[in-house]
Each structure stands twice: as structure tokens, then as C-alpha cells.
């Protein structure tokens, strides 16, 4: 069984304690979100899970066959055109060049990047287009686990919904597991099976929420209703410092 297991994870930067006693498990086909205020250690936690930072105390066990990462900013190579940027991830995994280009073109079209865009450099793309390329680069690998670092935060609502729909489609088919961090509760409610609330100073998990309705049946009413309900929660109020004045 593929799974990501985090046990008793602590982390320090110098003398500052960033994370304390983090425990959770992500099973295959599940979507786990971590919400919390900015500066609460969310990115550090994600980087530890993805192996971009070394674990100091505790353990992170990742038995997923493959994983990919999509960042908050697109992080494209400015000297590569759209298709070459997408195919980078495949080439890094030992795919043949011709095959990688073919797959990249297919996925680019699926993400709404028409052929006119294939040869363009990142400097000629809008922010939304760049983010599509970044998603395509991560998903072209067909990863079994996807790490997302607030990937929708810089997008307009239309594009946000479009990319989320693609993800929900993959989630519903149980093709993909996702670990993602966000400060947007509605985003978490729309996409995740389980949501962890990370409180700052130092980052620790104060509450877990589960959403049992499958993602492709969650309509706006469900998302708004749940958001309203969760916003009444004591822990949410104190974590996000929502006290009414």
C-alpha cells in the first residue's frame, strides 16, 4: 500500500522552533490539505514531506512510487519554451526525448495551451498560463503523489476553478493522491478528504476535519455551507485570529 506517514516530526531553523510533534498519514487516492495562517510552518512541513529539506527529528516515510511538486510560483526555466519546460520533468525521469515531447504536447493541449503557445518563452506568458505550464510539468509524470504549495493563490477565479476541475477529475478516478497547503479554507474544503489545521509558533496540528462527500459531487452550496460551519469553529477562530472586534 502506497502511503506517506509523518511521525513525531519536529523542526528547527537555528534556535527557532518551526514545527512540533506533527503526526499524520496520507493514504493512496486521498487528498490531505494543511491549512493555517501565513508564517505558520506550512511550507517547511511540505518541503520536509517532499524531501526538499532534511528531516531533523521524527520521521517521514514516503512509499509512493512517484511524486511531483507544483510551486506557488510557476518556476519555469526562462530559457526553455513551453513544451521544453513541460518535458523537463519527463526527461529527468529518463524518458526518451521524442516520447517526452509527444506526451508534453498532449498534456499542454489538455491544460488549454494551444499550439501557438508551444514555442513561446515564459516571458511571453501571462501568470495564469505559466501556472498551467507548471501544472502540466508536474502532472505529465502521472505521479501517484502530488505536492502542491498554494498553487492557486495567484490565479483568477476562472482559472482556479479550471485547474481544480482537472485535479478533481483525477482524484475521482483515484489516480492521484495530493498533499497540499493553503491559507484558503474554501479551496481546502473543495478538494480535500481530510484537512489539518496548523497553528503557528511553533507549528502544531490542533484539529482535523474530514469531508466525506466525494469531490466531484461537491457543489458551491456544499463548499459555502461547510465554510460557514467551519468558520464558527473555536480552533479555527483562534488559529486565524478571527475574534470579532
Amino acid at each position: 500500500m502506497e502511503r506517506l506517514e509523518v511521525k513525531k516530526l519536529n523542526h528547527h531553523f537555528g534556535f527557532t522552533e518551526i514545527l512540533r510533534g506533527i503526526n499524520f498519514t496520507l493514504d493512496k487516492g486521498e487528498v490531505l490539505s494543511i491549512v493555517g495562517p501565513s508564517g505558520g510552518g506550512k511550507t517547511t512541513l511540505l518541503h520536509l514531506c517532499a524531501g526538499l529539506l532534511d528531516v531533523q527529528e521524527g520521521s517521514v516515510t514516503n512509499t509512493f512510487k512517484s511524486s511531483a511538486f507544483a510551486f506557488q510560483e510557476a518556476r519555469l526555466l526562462p530559457w526553455k519554451n513551453v513544451i521544453d519546460n513541460i518535458s523537463m520533468s519527463l526527461l529527468a525521469n529518463g524518458e526518451k526525448k521524442s516520447e517526452a515531447l509527444k506526451k508534453s504536447q498532449e498534456i499542454a493541449l489538455r491544460f488549454g495551451l494551444e499550439e501557438d503557445y508551444f514555442e513561446k518563452f515564459p516571458k511571453d506568458l501571462s501568470g495564469g498560463m505559466k501556472q498551467r505550464v507548471s501544472f502540466a510539468r508536474a502532472l505529465v509524470l502521472k505521479p501517484s503523489l502530488l505536492f502542491l504549495d498554494e498553487p492557486f493563490s495567484a490565479l483568477d477565479i476562472g482559472l482556479k476553478k479550471e485547474l481544480q476541475t482537472v485535479l478533481i477529475e483525477m482524484i475521482s478516478k483515484k489516480e492521484l493522491s495530493i498533499l497540499f497547503i493553503t491559507h484558503d479554507l474554501m479551496e481546502a474544503i473543495r478538494l480535500s478528504d481530510e484537512m489539518l489545521l496548523l497553528k503557528a509558533d511553533p507549528g502544531h496540528i490542533v484539529k482535523k476535519f474530514r469531508f466525506d462527500l466525494i469531490q466531484n459531487q461537491r457543489d458551491d452550496k456544499y463548499v459555502y455551507g461547510k465554510s460557514a460551519e467551519i468558520l464558527q469553529d473555536e480552533e479555527i477562530i483562534s488559529t486565524f485570529e478571527l475574534e470579532l472586534k
Binding site: 517532499a50 526538499l52 511531483a68 511538486f69 510551486f71 510560483e73 518556476r75 526555466l77 523537463m88 520533468s89 529527468a92 525521469n93 510539468r137 505536492f147
Partner: peptide, 13 residues
């Protein structure tokens, strides 16, 4: 540094 991290996340050889 961000591109370095990206390269690392995709295990660039």
C-alpha cells in the same frame, strides 16, 4: 535558488 529547488523536486540528474 527557486529554480534549484524546482530541479531538486523533479530529481534532475
Amino acid at each position: 535558488g527557486e529554480l534549484k529547488e524546482m530541479a531538486e523536486s523533479f530529481n534532475f540528474p
